[in-house]
Amino acid sequence: MFASTLPAKALTLAACGGLLGCAGGARAPIDPPARTQYLGVDTRLLEGDLVSFMVQVAGDDGQQAAIGYTRCAAAQYALIRGYSFARHVRTSTAQKGGIWEADGVYTISPDLPRGTRTIDAEVVADDCKAQDIPTV
C-alpha cells in the first residue's frame, strides 16, 4: 500500500498535483464579464414614417446589443409618436475602436404593417425596460 507509507503533507501535494490551485495557494484574478454600455441613440426622421436610429454600444455582446438597442429605440419612438407598430427595414453595423455602431431603419405606423419583420411597440418597449436596455 503505497499511499499509507507517505506522510500526510506529501499526499496533499500529490492530490493537488503540486499546483497552486489548492487551498492556501495563490489564484489568478478572474476578469468580470464586460457589462454592456449603451452610449446613446441619435434619431433621424428620414421621410414620412421612415426613421433611422443610430446607436453606439460597448461591451462583450456589442453587435447584438447594438441591434437590440435600435429595436428598443424604434419601439419607444413609435409609442411617443402615438403609433403602435414598427417594421424593421434594415440595420447595418460596424465596429470602430471597440465601440459597436448600428444604424437601424424602421417605419412606424398606427396599424400592423405588412411584412414579417414587424414589432408591437408596447410589447417590445416593455421587454426592453425589463432587460435594462434604454430607449429614446
Score class of each variant (00 low, 15 high):
residue 14 A to N: 06
residue 19 L to K: 12
residue 20 L to G: 15
residue 21 G to V: 13
residue 21 G to W: 11
residue 24 G to E: 10
residue 26 A to Y: 08
residue 27 R to N: 10
residue 28 A to T: 13
residue 31 D to E: 15
residue 35 R to D: 14
residue 43 T to P: 14
residue 44 R to A: 12
residue 45 L to W: 03
residue 49 D to V: 09
residue 50 L to A: 05
residue 54 M to S: 13
residue 57 V to M: 04
residue 57 V to R: 05
residue 59 G to S: 02
residue 63 Q to S: 03
residue 64 Q to L: 09
residue 67 I to R: 01
residue 67 I to F: 06
residue 68 G to L: 08
residue 68 G to R: 10
residue 72 C to K: 01
residue 72 C to T: 03
residue 73 A to N: 08
residue 74 A to R: 02
residue 76 Q to V: 02
residue 76 Q to A: 14
residue 78 A to H: 06
residue 79 L to V: 06
residue 79 L to I: 11
residue 80 I to K: 08
residue 81 R to Q: 14
residue 82 G to F: 11
residue 82 G to E: 06
residue 85 F to Y: 15
residue 85 F to T: 09
residue 86 A to W: 02
residue 86 A to Q: 10
residue 86 A to P: 04
residue 87 R to F: 00
residue 88 H to Y: 02
residue 95 Q to H: 11
residue 96 K to P: 01
residue 99 I to H: 08
residue 100 W to L: 11
residue 102 A to Y: 00
residue 103 D to H: 03
residue 106 Y to E: 03
residue 107 T to C: 04
residue 109 S to G: 14
residue 113 P to F: 05
residue 114 R to T: 14
residue 115 G to M: 12
residue 116 T to N: 13
residue 119 I to P: 05
residue 120 D to F: 09
residue 121 A to P: 04
residue 123 V to I: 11
residue 126 D to I: 09
